[in-house]
Nucleic acid binder design. Structure first.
Lengths: 246, 246
DNA sequence: GTGTTGACACTTGTATACAAGCGTGCTATA
DNA sequence: TATAGCACGCTTGTATACAAGTGTCAACAC
């Protein structure tokens, strides 16, 4: 796709903004101005505009000409589609890996799994723990894709992954039990790959991906203004118009 | 992802440039200047730069700061990965469609297939024929994704599809036989969906996608300077350096 | 009191001037 | 003649001024 070029001003701003959006420090729906951002980083509007355009294409910003730029709402229907894509791809890639892998790859994988166990046994504060675990979680999946020789598949997927990533930081607010379940899933997934148990593998991958998503209803209701449904109906009535005529 | 906004200057330039790149009117490797492009469309550099940045993120342009901007080479390894992704996704989506569909959808699909038959029976010049057929081909696949309720999956895929699209215009230079085979595949694919013949369906999808790609070696050799391999080795030695020391 | 209208402040879109970096080719020198 | 060095022209990157469109709100007419 696109090579990582040397860190330019645009890229720096892009990275910082993206991190803030993904960590919900810039909450969905909030306004974000070019001029203000430029002033904050003490640069001109041009690189800020570049960064905004990139974030718009990833679906993280919504630029309304002559009106303003806003952090996009989290589209749950879009996340469902994204998860479907990942489910299908991951089942195929991991299946390929199970077919082709040899035991020489065991060590690298076990290393990451041990790291995750150590994290869970540590006494890190919830927020720090979840951040560290998400990183290690991604490393685990990256590793398996790489072992299967399908790094680019992972890379492609990441270009549409931003929405899901943001949703996940919303979920993982220190729920150590969830992280524990993810870790157990990782163990199982690797065991099934090693043992070439294709059916159980596919089933566990699906479960692993949708687990957090399906259990998200309650937490979504806590911040309904962050979310939107593209296909279906919003979870609460927009209150700007009167509905008495109905 | 990102909504289609009203046609702005940037988007217009983007569309025109993309079409030229995809149709190889701007050949891979050729230089393309911001100033020159701006002059050609009688606009300033700013919207041109926006368009360039977008095309860069799609992998169609390569912007080398302070050196120049070039139409990217066609990366055959990347295309292979893209095809893999499409193969996996399409097998899953079409399988879902086969499971859920009812006969009310028959008419719309048959309409497109009839259109393709008419195209093949017509006496259009090769280039026009292949262009029209590619459009109808995409419509066929779009339709099936839509019937399966997975429009977004198709949309996601299209964001990484540009490379393959460009490669396909390179292949389809009036090879009526190839188009005939594609049409036959479409007939079979729809028959297998209707008949819920899952295994044959998956097999035919793979065959359908890789058919043209695998038969491409000879045509690639005709324009080796258009192509590049990311993972493997180039198809011909770069002649800028002497290899006598080996 | 209510509805309309227009000025204003703010946004992003566009144009342009300037800065910075790279490559080429000429030139001077050994 | 060969080579080192420098100047120039080209590129994209950045900053900034201006254009154009939108929403707000206050003033005014009814």
């Amino acid at each position: 796709m696109y090579l990582n070029r040397r860190p330019g001003t645009s890229e720096t701003v892009y990275d910082k903004l993206k991190e803030q959006i993904l960590h919900l420090e810039l909450p969905p729906g909030s306004a974000i101005s070019e001029i203000e951002t430029a002033a904050r980083y003490e640069i001109s509007r041009t690189p800020v505009r570049d960064a905004f355009k990139m974030l718009e294409r990833e679906g993280l910003l919504e630029i309304r000409p002559h009106i303003g730029t806003f952090v996009s709402l989290i589209d749950l229907d879009m996340i469902a589609d994204t998860l479907y894509i990942r489910e299908v791809l991951e089942q195929a890639v991991f299946r390929d890996l199970a077919t082709s892998h040899d035991n020489s790859q065991e060590f690298a994988v076990r290393l990451i799994l041990q790291q995750q166990k150590d994290l869970l046994d540590s006494d890190l504060p919830p927020e720090e723990l979840s951040r560290a675990f998400v990183i290690s979680d991604n490393a685990f999946h990256d590793m398996l894709y790489e072992l299967a020789g399908k790094q680019n598949v992972m890379r492609y997927w990441q270009t549409i992954n931003s929405q899901y990533e943001r949703f996940r930081t919303f979920l993982n607010l220190g729920e150590r039990d969830n992280l524990q379940r993810l870790y157990q899933d990782h163990i199982l997934i690797w065991d099934y790959i090693s043992g070439r148990e294709y059916n159980r593998l596919a089933e566990r991958i699906s479960h692993h991906l949708y687990d957090g998503f399906n259990a998200s209803a309650e937490v979504v209701y806590k911040c309904p203004e962050y979310f939107v449904y593209t296909k279906g109906y919003p979870i609460h009535q927009i209150t700007t118009t009167d509905v008495s005529s109905e």
